[in-house]
Design a protein around this nucleic acid. Structure first.
Length: 534
RNA sequence: GCCCUUGUAGCUCAGUCCGGAUAGAGCAGCGGGCUUCUAUCCCGCCGGUCGCAGGUUCGAAUCCUGUCAAGGGCGCCA
């Protein structure tokens, strides 16, 4: 990448100028203002103090040196402000970039090998298998899958996994409620009241076991819903399987052997306070039943046996459990740096400005399916991923569904459809797609063309940052910028038509293809389709 | 009381991790632009004491301290 070249050139220059020590990392960034050049470095400001030199003088010496030893593509280097070193580049750096994007294509553009050799399990959704997925699951579902897509592109060996709470009190109540509905009765007072149980009960064969049949029915419901938003788990991990194969007991034994467990009031406790938790936690209740925590610990212990790094996506209502899980993993000797628990803040749903109730015993909760019905799978995913998981989100279903102007997903998809349309029109007009490696790109000098390429050049870094921060919203922001650049290009730069020379048409067709690759990659990282027409 | 997250334009949010130059985008409002590849678009204008107060720094939306406000969480429930 060009910034690596420039950084290396700066380090060489610092060495030649006798600056000690030469920093390991030279920061280069794209200035906010075009007149500050294509790339800028604050290296003179940053190292002035360490070297006891005046930053502007150091910057001036750097510029002079770099002027005499110009790296490829550099047109000029100048000092600005308090001591920035600004590089102005020739358009050729963007032309090279275009060739690179086209050559890498959808499979390789913005990919990197940072995760090579590292396995990671991304656990998300993990909904109780006794009711349809509801709105509260949606954000975490979209986030988890997109994080997995980002890690894929960074070369990690990724497993998408969800945990099934398929034993315990709630599942028993579920089976009882389902059986009651099947008999035409009301569920027990503490049972499940949702109308979906009436539907499911009607489907259930008379001789079926309500527990097993209902469990499978719920799983099918989850699978069907997630299919609609392009989410597919590699592993559906069963809690009760850990009872059968002894993993829970093994985990408890492991903890006991490490002397972090004690008995008190007839219960078994984990001394999580030794690891930063604010109180100790019960593993086995005085009545002999397990708390939810014991299987959860066993599950995470199992995951650490299968992967180097664990990422969990939890809702805000579970954030209080982070310290105890981290404590438990630390007690088991795992590196808690490799346990990354992402908390998604709550989402408020509205319709036409009116708040929608998210849950309720009578079954008036909004299901994930209803959200998809109302706004579509692509709009749902894009909307959930537009904002940082840290910020509380308000989604007005009517706005997302109906008012196209307020819904960026259409803007971005439209950009892709337009590029495809251009390619179709060009083919109809007899222009074959040029060989991008050979085509002359020097006709690409229009500001719209250059801006499009500059935006494309940002994606590789954004992928690295988004993957590291588990922050797909950075990709959503980027893809909106790229779409804006595409629409601007589309508006001002005809590809095929009167007054466009064949050479320019060829060059622009190459640009169209590179931009299309960028949109496809960006949208794919979000799990959103790139339609060829709209 | 303790813990987590948030507070940036009328609204919804980027930017904060890793401090840089005149703080960005969309929507809303106002005003322009289609004989050619999708006007579901493009361009301009309007709009911000970056919650508040200190501190560190050549330089703070960004780091530190305090404080206010909103949301969430603090079970031998799951």
């Amino acid at each position: 990448m060009i910034e690596d070249q420039l950084a290396e050139a700066i380090r060489d220059a610092l060495g030649a100028l006798g600056v000690q020590p030469v920093p390991d990392h030279v920061q280069l960034e794209r200035p906010a203002r075009r007149e500050h050049g294509d790339w800028s470095s604050n290296v003179a400001l940053a190292s002035a103090k360490a070297t006891g030199r005046n930053p502007r003088e150091l910057a001036a010496e750097l510029c002079a040196y770099l002027g005499d030893h110009q790296p490829d593509h550099v047109a000029s280097v100048e000092v600005a402000g308090p001591g920035f070193v600004n590089f102005h580049l020739q358009d050729s750096w963007l032309h090279d970039l275009l060739r690179q994007v086209a050559a890498e294509g959808v499979d390789h553009f913005a990919a990197n090998g940072f995760g090579q050799g590292t396995s990671v399990i991304v656990e998300f959704v993990s909904a109780n298998p006794n009711k349809p997925l509801h709105g509260g699951h949606a954000r975490g579902a979209c986030l988890g899958d997109s994080v997995a897509r980002l890690l894929d592109r960074c070369g990690y060996a990724v497993t998408r996994e969800t945990y099934l709470n398929d034993r315990g009190v709630q599942m028993g109540l579920f089976a009882e409620s389902l059986a009651a509905r099947a008999r035409g009765e009301e569920p027990p007072d503490d049972g499940y009241m949702g109308d979906y149980l009436i539907e499911w009960a009607a489907e259930m064969p008379v001789d079926a076991d309500p527990f097993e049949w209902g469990y499978q029915r719920a799983l099918q419901s989850h699978r069907d819903t997630l299919d609609r938003v392009n989410i597919h788990f590699d592993v559906w991990f069963s809690e009760r399987s850990m009872v059968a194969d002894g993993k829970i007991e093994a985990a408890l034994e492991d903890l006991r052997s490490r002397d972090v467990v004690f008995e008190e009031d007839d219960a078994t406790w984990l001394r999580t306070t030794d690891y930063g938790d604010d109180k100790d936690r019960v593993l086995v209740k005085s009545d002999g039943d397990l708390t939810y925590l014991a299987p959860d610990i066993a599950y995470h212990r199992d995951k650490f046996g299968r992967a180097d790094t664990l990422i969990d996506i939890w809702g805000a209502d579970h954030h209080g459990y982070v310290p105890r899980m981290r404590a438990a993993m630390q007690a088991l000797g795992h590196d808690t740096d490799e346990l990354d628990i992402i908390i998604t803040q709550l989402v408020d749903l509205e319709r036409g400005g009116e708040k929608v109730k998210m849950s309720g015993r009578s079954g008036d909760m909004v299901t994930f399916d209803e959200i998809i019905d109302e706004v579509g799978g692509d709009a749902a995913r894009f909307t959930y991923l537009m904002q940082s998981a840290d910020s509380r989100q308000t989604i007005d279903l009517d706005l997302v569904a109906a008012r196209v102007m307020e819904n960026p997903v259409f803007y971005v998809q439209m950009a892709h459809a337009r590029l495809c349309s251009i390619q179709r029109k060009a083919a109809e007009a007899g222009f074959a797609m040029p060989d991008v490696a050979e085509v002359d790109l020097t006709p690409l000098t229009h500001e719209r063309e250059l801006e499009l390429l500059r935006t494309l050049s940002d994606l590789p870094e954004q992928v690295v940052l988004a993957a590291a921060d588990r922050a797909p919203h950075k990709i959503a922001t980027w893809v909106r910028e790229l779409a804006a650049a595409v629409h601007g290009f589309h508006h001002d730069c005809y590809v095929v038509g009167d007054g466009v020379s064949p050479a320019l048409t060829d060059a622009r067709l190459a640009l169209v293809e590179a931009a299309r690759v960028g949109l496809v990659v960006g949208l794919d990282l979000l799990g959103v389709a790139a339609p060829e027409s709209m």
